[in-house]
Design a binder for these strands. Structure first.
Length: 567
RNA sequence: CGGGGCGUGGCUCAGCCUGGCUAGAGCGCCUGGUUCGGGACCAGGAGGUCGGUGGUUCGAAUCCACUCGCCCCGACCA
């Protein structure tokens, strides 16, 4: 391609609306333009790059035996009503009515469509297992689109769906996806972590997320540098740091003491002279319309996801001040578990074995000392605390780190969540009707590109790996007015094309500085500069990533590029 | 949905508080010339309903009300 003929609208300045690096660079490098919040046009460079990512995805999916299909983005409400997700998805589903007033939506994912299709066609165990995948645009009415391509309302996803006769089959295809995804992300040049994840609205038993570390992310991952354990913070477990002070020994009885105005754990620690680890934090929540008291160590945070699970209501909420006063006879800040009746108590496991701690007295401006779980009150024990950096790994004892991540893929063992209610049945070898077990496996294509840019960029622009860069090499004559340079550059460019290299010739009538800056910005991995040294028959081969330059004979340049590409 | 910020040529922004004559700068763009190894220089030029609507006023980019859009934080989140 000749740069002079292409539309690559690079920007010298950072557009005001872009905050995160990948967003800024995608705009500056002329890859994308925004149409509306969370809706983007992919210009030529983005399209080339995304197509390369899609090709990698297709090759690897095909290699694992999956079959590519295409599903309608436009769905009638009925299929979503059948699975129950018409209601569950709430405002995140783009909904509208067609001209006859029928409820419709834009699919945000395709479990429903896939299941409806399968139930009409799959009849026998002989047809299983099946893995179908699609690479399509999906829609989600995000309450807050942000960060360029990281959180958008219209996006390209690879989704695959598996049907198996039994759990063992599902386990196998799940594992196959896991390995295939690793290959895909490796080829895209992504450093990623696969983590244990929470299934959320998808349902199902097991799930993994593929995460890329980035400050632009919205998920937190706990990771062990020692043994490789990693999990979404929503699910992560750890051994908490030891209490900062030893508990008073002995079988002491709770004893009230005045704590005027001391409400927060920090204030109480300062007031009593006992560290936060000696306090019991009492949280009142409302789950399914009923109150519950949750206790964690003073310095610990409640994990809302874990709490939602044990309360059996992911939609639980903190109690309002008036509710707290009604149930406990005191305000938040003086609450505790002793003598509480008619409200179930859940205690975090970090409180087990502790003695004579401080807790609220359920009386304003008063607390109790010498409160012991199991003696002075009873509670159901669960892991409800959120892991923090520095906690010890439960497997190897090393200190866990907590990192911010972008989720680029998520795989789920769905189980029978869709096949059962939607009536997907096949006959087994005994002629009995059975329900196939399903899995679903998604990859965000745009997030791969954004993730790579987040990971690999510098002040001058993107640093893309050859596998997904829009071009592999750009040939740059330093001075267009110099016919010898121009001719040589053209010859090198054409020979590169002949060798199957994705080459770009920067034939623009621009000063060399402009061409170099633009080449750096759009992230082309290699550059061949045809300049003054041509007099000695030499051109320069520059690697974008390392900025190292090497002189090579101009006739050797195309081969040298090919070698650097590892081909 | 709650909180905050911003809408002025293609991009980045000034002007607004304290209303006043043809609305500015830099970058980009066009023409000509000189240049040519890290976003050149000179000369000339094109390009703006000041987001929209309504109001106040002799007069509104500027003040007021409403509204639309975008960004950020939170809520939310395959």
């Amino acid at each position: 391609m000749l740069w002079s003929k292409l539309f690559i609208p690079t920007l010298r300045e950072v557009p005001a609306e872009a905050e995160v690096a990948s967003h800024q660079l995608l705009l500056r490098a002329g890859y994308i333009r925004q149409l509306s919040a969370g809706i983007y046009t992919f210009l030529y460079l983005a399209q080339r790059s995304l197509k390369k990512i899609q090709t990698i995805v297709r090759q690897e999916m095909d290699a694992m035996g999956a079959q590519e299909i295409s599903c309608p983005a436009l769905n009638p409400a009925e299929v979503w009503q059948e699975s129950g997700r018409w209601d569950v998805m709430g405002d995140n589903l783009f909904r509208f009515k067609d001209r006859f007033g029928r409820d419709m939506c834009l699919a945000m994912t395709h479990e429903e469509v896939i299941t409806v299709t399968a139930r009409g066609e799959l009849r026998s165990y002989k047809q299983l297992p099946q893995v179908w995948y699609q690479l399509q645009t999906k829609f989600r009415d995000e309450p807050r689109p942000k960060s360029g391509l990281l959180r958008v309302r219209e996006f390209m996803m690879k989704d695959s769906y598996s049907f198996d006769m039994d759990q063992a089959g599902l386990d196998a295809v799940y594992d196959k996806h896991y390995k295939t995804y690793c290959r895909i992300f490796d080829r895209c040049g992504l450093e990623y972590t696969a983590v244990d994840a929470h299934s959320g609205a998808m349902g199902g038993s097991q799930s993994h997320e593929f995460m890329v570390a980035s400050d632009a992310g919205e998920d937190f991952v706990a990771r062990c540098p020692g043994c490789g354990y990693s999990a979404n913070l929503e699910k992560a477990i750890s051994i908490p740091a030891a209490p900062a002070a030893d508990d008073p020994a002995g079988d002491l009885t709770p004893e009230e003491f005045p704590t005027p105005g001391q409400k927060t754990i920090a204030e109480l620690a300062a007031f009593t002279g006992l560290p936060e680890t000696s306090q019991m934090k009492s949280l009142v929540v409302v789950a399914d319309g009923k109150p519950a008291l949750i206790l964690v160590r003073g310095d610990h945070q409640l994990s809302e996801t874990k709490a939602g699970a044990i309360l059996n209501d992911p939609e639980f909420r903190p109690a309002r001040p008036d509710e707290i006063r009604q149930w406990f006879g005191a305000d938040a800040g003086s609450l505790g578990p002793v003598a509480v009746k008619d409200v179930p108590i859940f205690a975090d496991r970090a409180l087990v074995g502790r003695r004579n701690m401080i807790a609220g007295a359920n009386k304003n401006d008063a607390h109790l000392r010498h409160v012991t779980l199991g003696e002075d009150f009873q509670a159901e024990l669960h892991d409800v605390r959120q892991v923090v950096a520095g906690d010890a790994c439960t497997r190897c004892g090393a200190k866990l780190e907590v990192i911010k991540c972008v989720e680029i893929a998520h795989i789920f063992k769905l189980g029978y969540k869709y096949s059962e209610p939607m009536g997907l049945r096949v006959l087994n070898a005994e002629g009995k009707e059975v329900t196939p077990i399903m899995g679903s496996y998604g990859i965000g294509i745009g997030r791969i590109l954004s993730g790579v840019i987040e990971l690999h960029h510098d002040k001058d622009g993107m640093i893309l790996p050859p596998s997904i860069a829009p071009f592999e090499v750009v040939v740059t004559p330093a001075n267009n007015a110099d016919a010898a340079q121009m001719d040589t550059a053209r010859a090198i460019y054409e020979e590169c094309l002949g060798l199957g290299i994705d080459a770009l010739l920067d034939d623009r009538d621009e000063r060399p500085g402009v061409k170099f800056k633009d080449a750096d910005l759009i992230g082309v991995p290699f550059r061949v500069v045809v300049g003054k040294k041509l007099a000695q028959g030499l051109v320069e081969l520059v690697e974008r990533k390392t900025r190292t330059a090497a002189d090579v004979a101009s006739a050797e340049a195309p081969r040298a590029v090919l070698a650097r590409l590892g081909r």
